[in-house]
Design a protein around this nucleic acid. Structure first.
Lengths: 122, 122
DNA sequence: CGGTATCCTAAGAGATACTG
DNA sequence: CAGTATCTCTTAGGATACCG
């Protein structure tokens, strides 16, 4: 089975974890150095505390994030990317770049598509 | 705002459409030529008819797929990638490659993570 | 500060019968 | 063949109060 489609299927599981709405934001936010929980909460805009925690755990479990706890008086927890995640970040930026370049076209395509459907409410 | 995080946020919307569990499979399946509905139903394994339709519409709306209907006696509908989508496919293969290279490590990381948590049920 | 725990709503997703 | 319509169940996700 060198068939790319057959290969893709289980991989999509992996991608599902990695390319999730929030995962990408978290990875990007952690890309340039260790980040603390509250920093993430601020930087990954729109995320709720719950979702942040869940995604953080998921990424940690998948071996993409390292969670370091400093047992100081005000607790300090830092998240940093593993090498694997850094490599992913590279691929991600490709995707990010694509999205950036084409989001205008996508918005236009949507508008055009909708224009051809909705007003047909004869 | 050259801040990559701030930039990433609206883009994630785009990615959300494009990097969805099924979208990737569909794009990959359509990458090497026009594909028919039933072909997709078979190739994107595990997808339900409903989800296939919904995702197909979504991708068409975003200007990533072109839907061509041949008004023949048995209806024939073909889906093919737009140039934009082909470009995306390139970025996607990068991600796919990453996932392929690391899924073993990810599985291991998961096992290790779980091993350190679950048996602690003292 | 860095989370859990809890509650609730909306969206995602499967199955499948029906239709032009 | 290529969908649509429906029904149902499971998650994703938001809000927020509380705790070590």
């Amino acid at each position: 089975m060198t068939d790319p489609i057959a290969e893709a299927c289980p991989i999509v599981e992996v991608l599902d974890h990695v390319a999730g709405k929030w995962s990408i934001g978290i990875i990007v936010a952690a890309a340039d150095g260790p980040v603390r929980f509250t920093e993430l909460e601020r930087q990954v805009e729109g995320i709720s505390r719950r979702m942040l925690t869940l995604n953080l755990r998921k990424l940690e479990r998948d071996g993409l994030l390292i969670r370091t706890v400093y047992p100081t008086v005000p607790p300090r927890v830092e998240y940093s990317l593993t090498d694997m995640a850094r490599e992913l970040y590279t691929s991600l930026t490709g995707l990010l770049g694509w999205a950036e370049r084409h989001r205008g076209s996508i918005a236009q395509a949507r508008a055009a598509y909708d224009a051809g459907k909705t007003p047909a409410a004869v």
